[in-house]
Simulated assay, not measured.
Amino acid sequence: MNTLTHAVGDSATMVGRQFRHMVRYPSLTLMLAGQAIVLLLLFVYVFGGAMGTGAGAATSRADYLEYITPGIMMIAVASAALGTAISVATDMTEGIVARFRTMAIARVSVLTGHVVGSLFQALLCVALVTGVALLLGFRPTAGPGGWLAALGLVLMVSFALVWLSVALGLVSKTVESASNLPMPLVFLPFLSSGFVPTETLPTGLRWFAEYQPFTPVIETLRGLLMGTGTGGSGVAAVAWCAGVTLVSYLWARKLYNRDPAA
């Protein structure tokens, strides 16, 4: 068996391990998706009437649902990434990685298992949020091409945030700190165009919202799903995803290779 085949086989084993964890503990996935679903219900039914008519984002509660759904999807992705950091930190602090080190397995397979498993979990969370939004009246006008492009964008964002969360999990000394470090990722969509147009924000906050990564991602996702076009936000969204992925991967690899337990 050559090195590549060995690494692929070990990675498949580790991915299976992550899937078994998700099956045995479905409450984690439901909790991560549930946070985003609760926010969706809260903003649509509690704030939707006022926000829809007053924020300039829409003219009714139904229009506001269409406006905020892409932002809620990003919160679901960020919430899933939070679970990734906790899972990585748990493995690193409870000695399982040290035991893996004594086995004849490819080093890359451990992180690969976390990344692939977390990607699946993130997509599942987004699917649950989208399903609830559709039940509430969300009616995207995208054709098959738009849906495929939207799925590709969600995959890119998820891949970037998963690698960032892997790095945050590796740098954390305890599981508790790993649960706290990625929290800004969950709050960043609130400081973007996910809930109100950026032009309605105060000057300083508007500048931050316009130049942080979630705004072009949400604008692109909204344009793809609603068929309104993406403008220049698509290029910015892809650039942000590529940059975050590269930096996070290099950071995670450095931390993993440096750790004596890895």
Score class of each variant (00 low, 15 high):
Gly9Asp: 10
Asp10Met: 07
Thr13Phe: 09
Arg17Gly: 05
Val23Ala: 15
Pro26Arg: 12
Ser27Asp: 09
Leu30Asp: 05
Met31Phe: 15
Leu32Asn: 13
Gly34Tyr: 12
Phe43Gly: 05
Tyr45Lys: 09
Phe47Ala: 15
Gly48Asp: 03
Ala50Tyr: 04
Met51Lys: 00
Gly52Thr: 00
Gly52Tyr: 00
Tyr64Met: 08
Thr69Trp: 05
Pro70Phe: 00
Ile72Gly: 01
Ala76Glu: 02
Gly83Asp: 03
Ile96Trp: 13
Ala104Asp: 09
Val116Thr: 09
Val116Leu: 11
Leu124Tyr: 06
Ala127Asn: 12
Thr130Phe: 04
Gly131Met: 09
Val132Glu: 02
Leu135Ala: 15
Phe138Ile: 07
Trp147Phe: 15
Ala149Val: 06
Leu151Thr: 13
Gly152Gln: 08
Met156Ser: 11
Val157Asp: 03
Val157Lys: 07
Leu161Phe: 14
Leu164Ala: 15
Leu168Val: 04
Gly169Gln: 08
Leu170Asp: 11
Val171Trp: 07
Val171Ala: 14
Ser172Cys: 07
Ser177Leu: 14
Ser179Asp: 12
Asn180Tyr: 14
Asn180Phe: 14
Leu185Lys: 07
Ser192Thr: 10
Phe195Thr: 00
Val196Cys: 07
Thr198Pro: 00
Arg206Glu: 15
Ala209Trp: 00
Gln212Pro: 12
Phe214Asp: 01
Thr215Gly: 09
Glu219Leu: 08
Arg222Cys: 08
Gly227Trp: 08
Ala236Ser: 14
Ala236Gly: 07
Val238Asp: 08
Ser248Leu: 07
Lys254Gln: 10
Asp259Pro: 09
Ala261Ser: 13
